[in-house]
Amino acid sequence: MSHTFDFDGRAIPFTTGQSVGAALVAAGIRAWRTTRREGRPRGIFCGIGVCFDCLVEVDGVPNQRACLVPAAADMIVRRQEGAGRGHLAV
């Protein structure tokens, strides 16, 4: 049985043990975050949890490293803009 998680409304298939980032790349998605100052695209860079480039919102929590979070069925993954908490700005 194949599993999927939701990425901005699209069902992304993954295999057991695969990270969110790996599944996104396998689905042809290479960028899922924009930088805070210049809005430039970012996705997997180091792939091992060090560089914090691949940040993504998972189940409502921003700044998760897509390369480290294991994909799970019914997970809701969202693109992240900037710090990912823009709605809190005052």
Binding site: R36, R85, G86, L88, A89
Partner: peptide, 9 residues
């Protein structure tokens, strides 16, 4: 903390 939008003035 992690970088945030302006929360505290």
């Amino acid at each position: 903390t992690e970088p945030l939008p302006r929360l505290i003035r």
